[in-house]
């Protein structure tokens, strides 16, 4: 026997659905408000433009310029995406369109394992392999002095980290395209490459953008792996071989320490607020493109 009759049960379920929906919809908003309240002290005393575009970071003397961190984050993320996007797209096309099925069956578990590894592992691997590679081989080869701990090292590690993640999504997207669409294009006399270029990629475009968007968001927010190889030097990087600092690394390195400095914790909250704002911005842009390309 039920405690409630059908109509009442329906009402209860319905209410719960609405509550969960509101909760999910308002979570980002709540985060935003929370962070804003915590950082309002800083925003009040300095102008927003100053905080974002000032280059001097001297918390002890009350100078909070986030520009180096923002630039560091953007560089690291964009270079990581520049490496990731073509590799993932071409690999996904290759394994779904050109190879025998069993290759995919072998690759899939490997990709899953890679996608699930903790980021510390990637960070350590970066310190052991990428950093020495840059300082000992790539730098000297290009005649550039570098310690190895650099924007480039962080981008490499990040891309290695998000490639399995993005690749997984892309493979699923290409596999979901019906065989008949491919047959339709081929039956018109298109070559396999024409079919891929003009039909399959176009069909998959919203999904491809979404996959890149997820990768971007992950790269931008990634803390540990980047922090371990980026050098953590507060300075505007002049080249990708210079060390840098990112917003997540700033928060992770300093929260809980040095909080005796006035407004320091407000500054870290502001950094989190920036992260959130940029993530939301990425999301909006991504959705715009998905809607734009989803009409086919």
């Amino acid at each position: 026997m039920y405690l409630l009759n059908r109509k009442q049960r329906h009402a209860v379920n319905y209410t719960w659905m609405i509550i969960s929906l509101l909760l999910v919809a308002f979570l980002p908003f709540l985060l935003f408000v929370g962070l804003y309240i915590k950082s309002v002290l800083l925003i009040h005393d300095y102008s927003l433009v100053d905080l974002i575009f000032s280059k001097t970071w001297k918390p002890a003397s009350g100078q909070f310029g986030f520009y180096p961190f923002i630039v560091g984050s953007i560089w690291v993320t964009l270079i990581a995406m520049l490496i990731t996007a073509p590799i993932c797209l071409l690999t996904a096309i290759y394994v779904t369109q050109y190879t025998k099925k069993y290759i995919l069956r072998i690759m899939h578990p490997a990709i899953d394992i890679l996608a699930g590894l903790p980021s510390v592992v990637y960070g350590l691997w970066g310190i052991l392999v990428i950093v020495p590679f840059i300082s000992r081989y790539l730098g000297p080869w290009l005649d550039i002095k570098t310690m190895g701990y650099s924007i480039l090292a962080a981008s490499f590690v990040l891309s290695i980290m998000i490639i399995p993640f993005v690749l997984n999504i892309l493979i699923e997207i290409f596999r979901a395209i019906p065989m008949e669409l491919k047959e339709a294009a081929l039956s018109l006399g298109a070559t396999q490459w024409q079919t891929i270029k003009h039909v399959l990629v176009k069909k998959a475009l919203p999904g491809i953008i979404a996959a890149f968007g997820f990768g971007l968001a992950r790269a931008f927010g990634e803390t540990m792996a980047v922090l371990m190889v980026v050098g953590n030097v507060v300075r505007l990087p002049k080249s990708v071989f210079d060390p840098g600092y990112t917003l997540p690394a700033l928060i992770a390195n300093n929260y809980g320490e040095m909080l005796s400095i006035p407004k320091y914790d407000a500054a870290l909250m502001f950094a989190a607020l920036l992260l959130l704002a940029v993530s939301l911005f990425f999301n909006l842009v991504m959705h715009f493109f998905i809607v734009r390309f989803n009409k086919y």
Partner: peptide, 28 residues
Amino acid sequence: YKLRQQMGLLSQRPYPLPMTIYNNISYA
């Protein structure tokens, strides 16, 4: 490819190419 163009194919369910109506024909 030439050989396939000797034949027009119509499948069980329609699979229009992800393009405009006009381009579905002009692509062919």
